[in-house]
């Protein structure tokens, strides 16, 4: 579903990525760990089509990102660290608008269903977005992703700033989406959560993917030790 082959990204005075290789299948949940500046955001932006790699290739669902940036947009979704959306519109209105942009026209009931799917309670649907908590906004962001039938979801620091209950809700949602066949790609600092939710883990250091492992092989403590040793 998602493939990066030898991705290089060089800027004028530094190299952000050195020969990155990743391959993900349908339903995999991938957690990319690494310090700030390691290259996590660069990787995501390349897959999103916002940055062109200096060399190498990236594929979403078999389609080259570099050659068809507009085409791959149908299959991807992005949930940033702070989901802001349009503060003066309600949750439903935001979902409706962005779905229409993506070319989907849903009925009121269908929109509500999407929001319920992500765990956003009905009482919040008609409140303005500026009244939402971080967790609630994130849910709307995910609802937008689901509503457009995205096959790959990219998330940036999804659990930062979430309280334990919200984190739990989030984990359940991600696992559910994975089971439904969506591929999830998360950039995160949250090692504990990484082990809980992901199927595969990658560790980046200074633009290189230096470790890639199956999360079921490690406990959180073991992973943390490995992380600190590696970094």
């Amino acid at each position: 579903m998602l493939k990066a082959t030898n991705l290089h990204k060089k800027y004028d005075n530094n190299t952000a990525l050195y020969g990155l290789n990743i391959e993900l299948k349908k339903g995999e949940v991938y957690a990319l760990l690494g310090q700030n500046g390691a290259g996590k955001s660069t990787t995501i932006n390349i897959f999103l089509g916002f940055i062109k790699p200096t060399s190498g290739e990236a594929f979403i669902n078999g389609i080259s990102v570099i050659e068809n940036p507009q085409l791959i947009k149908k299959d991807i979704a992005y949930i940033p660290e702070t989901v802001m959306l349009y503060p003066e519109l309600t949750g439903i209105e935001n979902l409706d608008f962005f779905s229409k942009i993506a070319g989907f026209s849903y009925t009121h009931k269908e929109l509500i269903d999407f929001l319920i799917l992500t765990g956003l309670q009905e009482s919040a649907h008609h409140r303005k977005l500026k009244e939402y908590s971080k967790g609630m906004r994130q849910k709307v962001g995910i609802a937008i992703a689901v509503a457009k039938n995205a096959k790959v979801l990219f998330l940036d620091e999804p659990t930062s700033g979430l309280d334990p209950i919200a984190t739990n809700e989030f984990n359940e949602l991600i696992c559910k989406l994975g089971r439904e066949g969506k591929t999830i790609f998360m950039a995160t600092h949250d090692i504990f959560n990484a082990t809980k939710v992901s199927t595969k883990i990658g560790i980046m250091k200074q633009g290189k993917l230096i470790q890639q492992l199956d999360s079921k092989d490690f406990t959180p403590d073991e992973l943390q030790e490995l992380y600190i040793k590696t970094i």
Binding site: L48, F50, Q70, K73, K74, I76, A77, Y78, P80, T82, V83, M84, L85, Y86, P87, F98, S99, I101, A102, G103, G141, I144, K148
Partner: peptide, 15 residues
């Protein structure tokens, strides 16, 4: 840009 919705618009397919 400040709301991050610009990026989202692009991902949703807006040219």
């Amino acid at each position: 840009k400040e709301n991050n919705t610009l990026k989202l618009l692009s991902i949703q397919g807006a040219s």
